[in-house]
Nucleic acid binder design. Sequence first.
DNA 1: TTGTTAATTAAGAATAATTCCTGTTTAGGA
DNA 2: TCCTAAACAGGAATTATTCTTAATTAACAA
Lengths: 143, 143
Amino acid sequence: MSIQDIIVKLKEHGYKITPQRQEIINVMAQENRHMTVEDIHGKISARFPSLSVDTVYRNVGVLERLNMLDRTDFGDGTGRYKLVENGSHRHHLICLNCGCSEEVDFCPLDYIDQQQIKDKNFAIARHNFEIFGYCARCSKKEE
Amino acid sequence: MSIQDIIVKLKEHGYKITPQRQEIINVMAQENRHMTVEDIHGKISARFPSLSVDTVYRNVGVLERLNMLDRTDFGDGTGRYKLVENGSHRHHLICLNCGCSEEVDFCPLDYIDQQQIKDKNFAIARHNFEIFGYCARCSKKEE
DNA sequence: TTGTTAATTAAGAATAATTCCTGTTTAGGA
DNA sequence: TCCTAAACAGGAATTATTCTTAATTAACAA
């Protein structure tokens, strides 16, 4: 999904394209990784000193609601945000020592018995799944 | 795992059995569900008015480190704790409307390609997996 | 039974992510 | 150019959790 596509979708839903919003999208598209609000704010505030954290929170909220952004908690209670194709998502291996993360090509919802859940009349909206442990580098140091 | 077993294991690891610690274990064993620190503190503070929240946090921390307690975040950023058999855990269907939860008999680690992860030299320590959506009751109301 | 000591505790301050509030500014359509 | 709903900045408020400090106590040994 290009920056242009994101802008179009925002306009379609009646959102205005402010310089702040544009910059937030630019930075996230450029970095293409899970960023904290602090990361995003930091990247922008050099050029845009008055940007408030609240504006970053507000905008990742908008993008998340339109399914253009994935929010993941890497286990420290801090939200991490990344632009994604419509509603798509990935799960991760997350290092408890250095905090690095790596995507895995597996989603538990492809393996769980969905029928069993439907039988309970539970309507799935979303899910989380992250694996925590120690990456190759940090495992090695440990020895 | 009985309360006695828990006490024995605590003693084995050099922990003292204080009345506060005993009460926290009693309440959690009695309720046998995922409780917030506030839940636990509330249940006890009637009989034990001076119990501090810090003591509850400290004790669930001890129990977690000894693999006798599972900490789960039901999506609101608040820890929820439940006594469990040694290191065992369950995943849940969690209602975004009423907050109720139901265990599911499925763990993604039984299905993911573990070899692929070992090949990356990643050492798994723990994982999370929770499904969010709307329970039968709340889905019905919606209509 | 009493003394010793490391573990534990209470109380409140500190921290940190996120949300809320208020008054001001502005994007985009008329 | 004007109008108005949306968006903004700045800072206060909220909330889960951790930290600090001084006092208390469980467990063990003499």
